[in-house]
């Protein structure tokens, strides 16, 4: 499998500590039971402190498995994970003080307890003194607009509010690293925006390291400094977000709009046409701009009226789809 990587650079954010990577994964492999196929296959990643790191992949790619190994909830078959230099298998207690986590598909907090009770519980669970936990809980609940409803049971909250409480519980002990596995799943636009704002604030203003998995590419593109893409348990790309986008920009996508419905047009290879409301849209990726001129010439030869020609920049979703659909190289 070819992997596109570049050595991670330190963040220039205030408060960022770059000497030791906040998250370091080396040669991590996890095979469940007697399965022949590892869920995570010899992956290595290094996340500098203060980075928002997007960890992307389709369902079943190995993202959650990796996060659970990082969090010490799952034992690796082989390899090593370090959080701020601490190995969870050897120094569990110290490692647990380095991070907070919102786990995918879980409630994360007790629905039978109030938001206030949950935060105090998880604060003390993390080893905080009662008074410290109360102060921090108040700060978090006020910051999340939950203070007025702090004594209501979480089960009665909306999905967005429940997720806010989960994020607050992960941050209760003010950990330097935050693992967020699908933190915006199931949230409406406003709640997603709130969580995104939180992530941005945590990283930019408070220098925290955030490892984020999500299927919402706009979230990643907006927040992440660096992105790794995992496919079938293997990392297929690990680059700063802008470099990843730039790399795919080399194979830019072009779009030509032609007047009328002309599905019978003869096109050069690599281009496809579709008709939308009286217009034919021809699009395709090109490795050489000359291919676009060839296309236009071909269209003129067929007496088609070209309305516009534009270069379509790839967004992260295009990059992601390109990476996960690319044939594997053994």
């Amino acid at each position: 499998m070819s992997t596109q990587t570049q050595a991670p650079a330190g963040s220039d954010r205030p408060g960022a500590v770059t000497a030791t990577p906040a998250i370091e994964i080396s040669g991590l492999t996890k095979t469940y039971g007697s399965s022949d196929t590892p869920s995570v296959n010899n992956i290595s990643l290094s996340v500098p402190a203060g980075t928002v790191f997007g960890f992307l992949g389709p369902n079943g790619a190995g993202k959650t498995t990796t996060i659970k190994i990082l969090a010490g909830l799952l034992a690796a078959t082989s390899g090593k994970t370090l959080l701020n230099g601490y190995d969870v298998t050897r120094r569990r207690s110290a490692t647990m003080q380095q991070f907070g986590a919102v786990l995918e598909g879980s409630r994360n907090v007790y629905w039978t307890l109030s938001a206030w009770q949950n935060l105090l519980y998880f604060g003390r669970l993390k080893g905080m003194r009662g008074a410290d936990a109360r102060d921090r809980a108040e700060e978090l609940l006020k910051g999340l607009d939950l203070w007025e409803r702090r004594d209501e049971k979480v089960g009665g909250y909306s999905r967005g509010m429940q997720q806010k409480v989960a994020v607050a519980a992960a941050l209760i002990a003010d950990p330097p690293i935050v693992l967020l596995d699908e933190p915006t799943i199931g949230l409406d636009v406003e709640a997603t925006r709130t969580v995104m704002e939180w992530i941005r604030t945590m990283a930019r203003d408070r220098g925290k390291t955030v490892l984020l998995t999500t299927h919402q590419m706009n979230v990643v593109e907006e927040l992440c400094d660096r992105v790794a893409v995992i496919r079938k348990g293997e990392v297929v790309a690990d680059l700063p977000t802008d470099q990843l986008l730039a790399q795919f920009r080399e194979r830019d996508k072009y779009e030509v709009r032609v007047e009328g419905n002309l599905p019978e047009l003869s096109l050069p290879s690599g281009f496809t046409a579709r008709s939308v409301e009286g217009t034919t849209i021809i699009s395709g990726r090109v490795s050489d701009p000359q291919q676009v001129y060839t296309l236009v010439d071909r269209l003129r030869d067929q007496h088609a009226v070209v309305q516009s020609l534009s270069q379509v920049q790839p967004d992260l979703e295009d990059v992601f789809m390109g990476l996960i659909k690319a044939p594997a190289h053994d």
């Binding site: 408060g15 960022a16 500590v17 030791t20 402190a49 203060g50 701020n84 230099g85 601490y86 120094r91 207690s93 110290a94 003080q97 380095q98 003390r124 669970l125 080893g127 003194r129 009662g130 700060e139 910051g143 999340l144 607009d145 806010k164 002990a173 003010d174 950990p175 330097p176 925006r193 709130t194 704002e197 939180w198 604030t201 945590m202 203003d205 408070r206 220098g207 925290k208």
Partner: peptide, 28 residues
């Protein structure tokens, strides 16, 4: 829009103890 008031956040490794003290056990 909800925002967090930036305060002195913890950025580097947290203060750690390999073995929690008796008070932490009792607290937990």
């Amino acid at each position: 829009m909800t925002t967090l008031t930036p305060t002195a956040g913890r950025t580097g490794p947290a203060n750690t103890a390999d073995r929690p003290g008796a008070a932490t056990y009792l607290n937990g």
